[in-house]
């Protein structure tokens, strides 16, 4: 027992590693604040384009979305980070994470928002158009507010996944929470910093998981 505590919950090491790990936390938060809106906007564009009637628009769009849903995000990230320099383009870890997430999470957000938009009855659009609202106004004031509300649990769930995914930044040397924890671990030869990172993730994300679990349960029960 003593040994376990010494290895995983070593107070001395925790104290020394705390500033390093907290710096990582700050970067994780900043990274999330960048990639979540970025992915959401990308998804919104995809979902709006998917409303086009023309198959010439819809099919390539579906292929795009499926392509990036089939790709593990880490593969996309490594492809950008290790592949692009061969094309003479060196972007750095941070930019690669931003682009990879935009492509990957944008596709997920896009599918969720598309489902939300399609859940709104046709009559809502007709009523809005009959009062003279334009297509764009109808989307902005009538359809989207309802669509987002309908798929709020899915949007929140995806956002949780995106925040967790920022840990991939550690692979391309973005100094986020996991990266910093591993740095501290490799200096101290003790896994306590990684345990710290795990505890921090848990403390921050647990409330979100609780909330989601309640929302999802309600949604499924309502539909069943």
């Amino acid at each position: 027992m003593e040994e376990i505590v010494q290895s995983f919950f070593n107070a001395e090491i925790a104290e020394a590693a705390l500033p390093i790990v907290l710096a990582g936390l700050l970067n994780t938060i900043l990274l999330s604040l960048l990639v979540v809106p970025l992915g959401f906007i990308g998804g919104l564009v995809l979902a709006l384009l998917a409303q086009a009637r023309s198959r010439a628009v819809r099919w390539p769009l579906m292929a795009w979305v499926d392509f990036f849903r089939a790709f593990p995000p880490l593969v996309l990230l490594v492809l950008l980070f290790a592949g692009l320099p061969f094309a003479g383009l060196e972007l750095g870890g941070f930019a690669c994470v931003a682009i990879a997430f935009f492509l990957n999470t944008g596709s997920y957000y896009g599918e969720i928002l598309r489902a939300g938009i399609e859940s709104i009855p046709r009559g809502q659009v007709e009523a809005a158009r009959s009062t003279g609202l334009s297509g764009l106004q109808t989307m902005t004031y009538v359809v989207l507010p309802q669509a987002v509300r309908n798929v709020l649990p899915d949007l929140l769930s995806n956002t949780l996944e995106v925040v967790k995914l920022t840990s991939l930044g550690s692979v391309v040397a973005v100094p986020e929470l996991l990266f910093q924890a591993r740095q501290a671990q490799s200096v101290t030869y003790n896994p306590t910093p990684i345990v710290m990172a795990a505890v921090i993730y848990f403390l921050i994300l647990w409330p979100v998981v609780r909330l989601l679990s309640r929302l999802e349960n309600r949604a499924l029960v309502g539909r069943g």
Partner: peptide, 26 residues
């Protein structure tokens, strides 16, 4: 379309707005 009001069988009120909000939007 402003000059042609329409009333639907299924009302089609915007559920996320109050009665006042429904009337005010257009």
């Amino acid at each position: 379309r402003q000059h042609i009001g329409m009333v639907f069988q299924s009302f089609n009120l915007y559920p996320h707005m109050t009665a006042l909000g429904n009337v005010m939007l257009a």
